[in-house]
Write a protein that binds this DNA or RNA. Sequence first.
RNA 1: GCUACUGUGGCUCAGAUGGUAGAGCAGCUGAUUCGUAAUCAGCAGGUCAGCGGUUCGAUUCCGCUCAGUAGCUCCA
Length: 637
Amino acid sequence: MSFKVTFPDGNTKDFVAPVTIGEIADGISHKLAKIALGGMVNGKIKDLNTKVDQDAELKILTWDDDEGKTIFRHSSSHILAEAVQNLFPGTKFGIGPAIKDGFYYDFDSPHVFTEDDFEKIEKEMARLAQGKSVFEKSVISRAEALKYFEDLGEIYKVELINDLPEDAEITTYKQGDFLDLCAGPHLPSTEKIKAMKIMSIAGAYWRGSEKNKMLQRIYATSFPKKTQLDEYLNLLEEAKKRDHRKLGQELELFTMMEEGPGFPFFLPKGMILRNELENYWREIHTKAGYAEIKTPVMLNRCLWEQSGHWQNYKDNMYFTQIDDVDFAIKPMNCPGSILVYKNSLHSYRDLPIRMGELGLVHRHEKSGALHGLMRVRCFTQDDAHIFMLPEQIKDEIKGVISLIDEVYSLFGFEYHLELSTKPEKAMGSDDIWEMATTALREALDEENLAYQINEGDGAFYGPKIDFHLTDCLGRTWQCGTIQLDFLMPEKFDINYIGEDGEKHRPVMIHRVAFGSIERFIGILTEHFGGAFPTWLCPVQVRLMSITDKQLPYIEAICKKMQAKGIRAEVDARNEKIGYKIRESQTMKIPYSLVAGDKEMENETIALRRLGKGDLGAVNVDELIENIISEIKERKNP
RNA sequence: GCUACUGUGGCUCAGAUGGUAGAGCAGCUGAUUCGUAAUCAGCAGGUCAGCGGUUCGAUUCCGCUCAGUAGCUCCA
């Protein structure tokens, strides 16, 4: 009996059943068969030795496919589990999936794992992989599965089985002496896994809930070749050099003190960068029709009760008392903004009203969550609230989306979007939530933007669109957000006078573009590896002379530059030129200018551009004009 | 907050199975005036995160606290 297989490139080929995916790959080329890790049959990811016996669309998965890597890493995680089973008897097993760049397995073990165990476990894993054991798949009944894992005392596996839907097919995979409840797919054998390395250990709550027991999670990674592992480890080393915490200290941008955990101190250089960002922010927001306000950091308890923060956000808030009255330090800017709106009467003709605020908020974050500038306890949101007519919603959302895109594009950031829906802890009726969520979804769809949905992750007052950016190690951080809110207007009873002369309820958008200035600076630092675009650089130009003889010459140039608004400085220290160059390079100053006798005679200056090396002598006035236009256009390096 | 780990001069790190600490860079002083990633010499700088305990004696061992790192939970 023959059937037809369609490949991603549209080609088809006939095969005679039964034939496995691996054999089909071999039918195409021996080379492909060698690197095949699994297959995608009609969109479903399958084992390489899955039999195909009818017309199907098939993609052979290799290391170049994410799904191929997933199969590879998932199989690796079973080897890790087998190694732990062999070395640490009495260990119970949780789950062990593939993740980005590797895999992990969760264990509940009487043995407390430390880094000292890594070598031992890695050795055992290597031994097991070299054994070329086969991954054997079996389909078993629920009763059999339960009995098997109950007898072993594998309480976590039993829990997983019990939570499987009634009609689910229960499968196990066995390699060597290790049998695991697993949906697969897996590699045919351990043979292809040539390089494995344990990366770290960490606690992780069973099934991700704080209420459950914390298991020990071992993170590891694996590759088909040892050289690929070395490359990956190298990449990690390089990435660490871009860590904003390291660069923040080296470039003297900001610092953290024991006296204020999670409360960053901005140093003079960091302040320049920050102020430049804020200037840019004001510029584009003025252009987009925003007015700027500033509201108090601390406000009366009543306000927070009215907004619902007291009930819904108390754990994250800081409190104090003034003359026996409770006050809260603001964790968000919206209530203050609303009071500003309420300060005067508004006509439908005034809407939309866009009010921006660089608002300093304080939130009590759990100590373990703090992370450099990315996660702090006080930060400045580049916040804005838009009060509008219901029919203006979609246009305003689109306007905000394009504004945020403009900001991220300026820096060359890649980002992804998430739409977060109604959380458990939410105020307001389902109808209102439905309406708000639909508005956000439609705006995204009409702009043809890709997004993923985060069920139940919205703010307590409304659904939101989040913009996520990536740090040097591939961790993503939420920066921009657009939140639609029908509730606060209700709670604060704000209104506008309509065409009919009656009071009507406006709708509100809460939105940030940078997200928090602090986090954004963290992301910026890692994105540029500290080599910021010139317009953001604390020091844009460093001038140095070969000997003291040229000092007056460069000092004059420096003054000229400063007069034109360029942040230039002279390194007048009595050091060799190599020494001064080295420092200007490590401080990542974009323009290093050197003058010796030659330059002084010709009224030029030798230019060294960061990352581009020595560019030779240039005309001073032309250089100044070029630098000015680079700053003005906010060019990226 | 939870699990594991870490905490030595401004920075990067060494150190002793317990006898009160070293190096490089940075800083200061002096010499050197030199062509694109570190000139030489000298000086100064530390109650070894804090508090308790064990001990004749603790920075080193133990406990607690604080701070940091990785991850979990949570979130901009």
